[in-house]
Each structure stands twice: as C-alpha cells, then as structure tokens.
Design a protein around this nucleic acid. Structure first.
Lengths: 225, 225, 225, 225
DNA sequence: GATGAATGAGTTTTCATTCAT
DNA sequence: GATGAATGAAAACTCATTCAT
C-alpha cells in the first residue's frame, strides 16, 4: 500500500527541520503533479482523492495535511499549471529580440511550443475551463493571462501599427492583439480535439498568415522577419 | 437490465398515437433542458440526478426510463446542444446570399449571434469540452462541426482566394478557414471568461479585420461587402 | 417492444367471452412459464418483473392483473412446478405394477427421469428451497411431497420389510423410506452442482445398490426384479 | 476505482503491528457473521447492505472498504461458512480411529453434528445452493467438498468393500460413497424443511441402516462397531 | 381489459473528510 | 507529522407497483 512511503522523518529529528521541510515540499509537489496527471487523464470529475494518492504513492491524510482538502489541492494545481505557463512565456520573451514583432513572435512560439502545448497541459487547461464558471480562483487565473500577456501584445501591436502607418493604430492594435490571442486559443482547442492530426508548423503558419496580411512590413509566413 | 429499453423516440414520433407519446416526448425534452441548465450553472460535476430532477420537476426514475442512466442523458444533452447550434447555422446560411463571402459572413454572424453565443451555451460548450477527452460521443460532436462547417468555409475561401488572385489559393484558403474558425473559438473563450465585458460588435470587427487584411476585395470591417 | 402482443381482444367482443377466457388462461400460463424460465436461468433475485415480461412478451400491467403482484406470481410458479412434479410421479405410478417394490421403483424412476430431473427443474427447485424459510407457501409445497410420496413409499416398504421377514418391519420401513427419499434428494443436489457429469444410470444404480442390500428379495441393481 | 484495495488480511495477520490491524480484522469478521445471520434469517435476496450493517453495528462504507462490494462480501461469507464446515469435519476425523469405517462414521457424525447441522448453517447452505448456478465462486465451494470429503469416503469404502469380500470392491465403494454423501445431503434438506421434527439420532440410524445392510461386518445401527 | 409511462422508496456504491494510532 | 481505517452523506441506479389512456 505504501511502497513509496517517504523516508522516515524520525531519521533527523533535531537537525533544524531542514530535511523535514524539504520532504514536505517534495510531497506537496508530488501531490500536485499527481493531481495534474489525473485531471489530464481522467478529467476533474474522475479525479478523486483515492486516485490522487494512488498516483502520488502518499497517504490519504496528506492531502488534508498539506492543502486542507481536495478543493484547495485542485486549485493549487491550477495555479501551478498557470505559473508554469508563464515561466515558459517569460523564457521565450527573455530569449527574444527587443523589437515589438519579436515579442509577438515569442508569444506565439511559446503558446505553440511543445513545453506549453501538449496533451497533458491542454487536457488540464480545458478541464479547468469547464470549472471556471463555478470556481472563482480558477477563473481568476485566466485574468492574469489577459493582464500580463494581453498588455504586452497590445503594446507591441501599437508600435507595429504605428510603424505600418495605420490611421487608427490603437484600434488596429487592440483588434490585432485580441485576434492573435483568440487564434491561439482556437489552436489549443484544435489540439484538444485532434491531438493526432495537429501540426505545430501549420498552426504557426496560420497565425502568421493573418499577421502578415495585416502587417506585411513586420511579419511573414516563416514566423518572424 | 433496464426496466425498459429507453424507447427510441425516432421510431414513431408522428404516427398520431397521441397524448401519451407526446407527453413522453415532452418529458424527455424537459429532462434534457434541465440537464443543460444545470450544466451551464453548476458544471458537469455538480450536475447530479437529484439536481436535474429538481429542475425538471420530474421523478427520479424517469432519467433511467428515458435515457438508461445519467451518462446517456448528458450525452443526449450534448447532442441536443450541438444540433441546435447547427440549426442556427443553417438558418443563417439559408438567409445569406450565395457568394462565398456571404457564406463566411453567415458563419461568423451565426457563431457570434445571441442565439448561439450566450452564457448558457458557452458554459455548456466548455463543460463538454472538458469531458471530450474522456467521452467519445462528446468528442465526436466536434468532429461533425469540423466536417460540415469546416468544409463549407474552406470551399468558400478557395473561391475567394482564387478571385483575389492568390498564387496558392488552396493553401491560403485552408489557412484562412482554419484561422477563422480558430478565432471564433477564441471569441467563445473570451465570452466564457468575461461575459460582462464581451462585445459582439468588437468580436465581429476583429474577425473581419483579419479577413479584410487578407482578402481586401471580399471583406471589410462592417462584416460584408 | 410488444412484438408478441396478444391477438387483439376487440376481435370478438360479444361472443360470450369464451375466446377471451381462453386468451386470459394462455397469458397466465405464458407468464408462469416465463417466470420459471427466468428463475432457472437467472435465479430468484434476478427475476424481475421486467425480465419476466420481456420473456413472456406481455405487458407490464398483466402481472398485477393476473396475479396481483410479483410475489403471487412466483408462488403460483412454484405451485405449477410442484404440480407438474406430481403429474409425472402419478404417470409413473399408474404405469407401474401393483407390487410394493414396483411402486418404489416407479418413485425412483420418476424422480430421476428426464422429465423431472432436468436443469430447469433442478435450478428452479433449489431457487425455491433457498426461499423456503421465508415463504410459507413455498415451504408448504414440500410438505405435500412428504405427505403423498412419503406415505406411499412408507406403506410399500412396510409390505416389503414384512415379506423379507424383518423383525421390526415398521421401523425398517420408516428408515428405508426416509433414506430412499433422502438419497434421491442428494442426487438432485449432485445434478445441480454437476449437470455435465451427472449420469441417470449411475444415480439409479446407487439407489438400488442400497435397496438391494437391504431388501435382497425385492430389489437388484438393474432397478426392478 | 475502489477507495482502498480491500486489504488482503492474509498478508500480515500476525506481524505484531497492533490494535489497528486487529480491530480491522474483527470488523471484517463482524460483517461476515452479520451477513451469514441475515442470509440465514432473511435469505440472500432480503440481505441488503442496510440489513447487514444494522446487524453488525458498523458503518455503511465498511462493506466496500473491506470487501469492495456486497457481492464479494456474500462470497466471502460463503467461503467462511464452507471453511468452518471443514474445520468441524477435520476435528471429527482427527478424533476418530484409524480404521476405514471410523472415517466414515466420523464423516456422518460430523455432518449431522449440532455444530454443522443447525438452522443457521442449513439456511445459509441452501441459500447459497440457490445461487450456485449463477455464482462460480459459490459453486466452486461444493467442488472442494467433493474433492476432500468424497476422496476420503471413497478410499475408506474401497478398503471396507475389499474386507467384506465384494467381487467388484471399487464399483461398490464408489456407489457406497456417493450414496452416503447423497443421503447426508437429503438429511440436510429434511432439516431445512422440518427443523422441528428432525432428529439427529433418527438421521444417523437411517444412514447406518443402509451401511449395515451393505457392509454388515463394518457397520451397525448404533453408528460404529 | 390491456398497456406501458411514470413514480419514488429503497438499493448499492462512492468518496471527501476525520481522527485514533 | 504521517497514516489509513472508518464514517456517513450523497451519489447513481433498480424495480414493484400504479393508473391514465
């Protein structure tokens, strides 16, 4: 039953708690990963406490010990998933050039990268979306996305639209920003429903097909100028 | 063994027969509507049999009498929702002009219309999406969408791309079709997460901003030429 | 659903009810047979009203119309089964000789005959036995068996024991009678548990092996002198 | 998915461990006894989970915790009942002499003893018999009986038949063995249907009346030479 | 008289949570 | 701190019976 029982905590009782603390953190993470795995594979409804602890190889009580209940655990898992999404985004942005079109390209590339757009993430993402209406915490995560990513995209597109000489650069930029993020959303749905026939290259080309049409001086089909 | 095979309503819906049959059909529909209401408001996980019958004002046994179980009921509800989506689409298509751009406009208008894109539908839609990975029937519904709607969109865009003189009209059309449907998907997500600040006009304008950029001879910001 | 619907009773409404009465009786019997079939194949617990009407091809209400409820139907089926058992026994007795050993042979032959000892009957019999403790009516049926068959067997053995010159013919006869009926019971159990390897000839030989040992002047291994 | 795999109690029943494990085992047994009581008094069909937990004074969930469902519980109860039957038999055999006729006497005595042949056991036994056709596990228990007990009886009778100078000792022994076990079966049925007028002495005498007739040098009416 | 849709009490089962060890 | 046996409310489902047609 407890083959994966964590190392005996009695081993170093007066060492200051450092090891203990580390173990705690490790168990916490194991539970979160097990939860995300289960949600990805079984869906939220099928993700029971028993399922989670079986995957984590930890004891039943641990969920309440660490998270105070299943609900909190699920929300923490949503937050973890969201946080990882942003870490990837920031990584891509950090590695990108400074021109506004570089930022847009980085956003698109990140959103379609294997690290972000994969079966597990997409499954988890849509499972949480299905819960968004009922769970404030989960709904809130998407807002963060809007704020951080939407703001950056919009600012970038304003610069691009100005450079392209549009008469109403702000209006164009707002639509371009919302539209780009919407297409990316749509690509995720496509991946969800057809993980086998989905193709990252095709997805990127579609996005840039639209962007190139709108801002020919800044984008082309290959993804970046 | 089920008490009654859930009678196939298709068998003899209009053979006169009478009040009995009609009432039966009405009850069936009441259950389906109650299920969709509950899914929209509580999510699939919270949609219990008790919840459904309380909303429907019908008896507990009826769910199993008509559908053979909760699972089948939920799937039938998904099918009903899907079917209604298509009815709206066909209505818009029937009322549209015959030019290819008219068809695209009809698709966009239908997808963003109040009858289709409303809180209830979007909630239900995303709840089902969260189940798609686990339920073949529900996943299948989206395929239908691809087939019927995707096919029409693609054919329309091929004609448009040719008329615009694109060198690779089929490739352009394929991307335009997938991209347009992807944006619409994204708009639905936007509506899901921000039903209050969502604006149909803005959404349509964003779509047509992209389409106008790509096919300036066929689309403009007002939605149709 | 009602493929086997009985002939329309409206056909001959004022013919004096003769046909109607006949149909009633036929439906009653169809229900009883369906009940016995179901009990034999599924056991009493699995024999639901739905199961019975599906087998009988009759309507749900009919059970209450004819028997006033499932319980009565099951008891009527038990009585029918019991009655048939006696019919076979009487047939064998009527066809037998008049000597006491002929009667014993007839009882044994009847009890081990294909018409009496077959899968359906044995299954039904043991299903009812399992209920005997709870259902007075069913328990009562076995008493009848004791009375009629036990009485005949005992009287026959008294004559046989006297003829064999036993010192306490009544005591011997009582034991021989009870013992013979007990062995036959045991043979039924054997058939229940091993219908494939059961052999009627072996069963008869075992009975007569015991009887021949006890009353060598009246019985031998071939079953009758 | 079950919350806990129903822990196999064989795994570590005597490893010290402690009160926890002991209590668990006690609860398991309490459930089994309550089940047997209920089956004996109400029959299998009336033995609901509610009935069992009311008798056991334990919680509803425990049945699924320990056995994974009612079906398994009933089968475990059948096994327990069977096992106890064998324990009594072995006890009688161990206390018996070594001569073959002593073994036969021990089998008969055990089968008719108060510890084995009592209202509860007989009711339970016949309830299970009624299920044998549907439940492989329960049917299998009777096979064990055949194997262990039938083998011993047959071997004993072969020795007896040889000593009595029978020309075909093996054939005689086989019939004597099957016949003896069949009579005992029949005695159980008699007890089931007439627990009040059943008399152990009479039952034993009937058995030995047959055996004495067949093997006069080895058996007499008092039960053993 | 016959039908079968409807009922709802009662069944089995699930599962987040608790808490003695 | 960690464990996992125990709990019991609530879930899905069954099914004999009723009764409008």
């Amino acid at each position: 039953m407890s083959q994966n029982a964590p190392a005996d905590p009695q081993i170093a009782p007066e060492q200051g708690g450092g090891k203990r603390q580390l173990l705690r953190e490790k168990n916490r993470l194991t539970l979160l990963e097990a939860t995300l795995d289960s949600i990805a594979e079984q869906g939220i409804a099928e993700t029971s406490v028993s399922e989670i602890i079986a995957r984590a190889g930890l004891s039943r009580g641990m969920i309440h010990l660490h998270f105070g209940g299943k609900e909190n655990l699920v929300e923490a898992a949503a937050e973890l998933s969201n946080q990882r999404y942003y870490e990837q985004l920031e990584r891509h942005l950090a590695a990108s050039g400074d021109r506004p079109q570089d930022k847009i390209v980085a956003i698109v590339r990140s959103d379609l990268s294997e690290e972000v757009l994969n079966t597990r993430n997409v499954s988890v993402w849509y499972a949480f979306r299905g819960e968004a209406r009922k769970r404030a915490v989960i709904a809130g995560l998407s807002d963060t996305r809007d704020t951080r990513m939407g703001g950056l995209a919009k600012r970038s597109f304003v610069a691009i639209a100005r450079a392209e000489g549009h008469t109403h650069p702000r209006a164009v930029a707002r639509d371009a920003s919302n539209g780009t993020l919407a297409i990316l959303e749509g690509m995720w749905t496509d991946y969800l429903l057809h993980p086998d026939r989905f193709n990252r290259g095709d997805a990127a080309r579609i996005v840039f097909r639209f962007l190139a049409a709108m801002f020919p001086a800044h984008f082309n089909l290959s993804g970046a100028r």
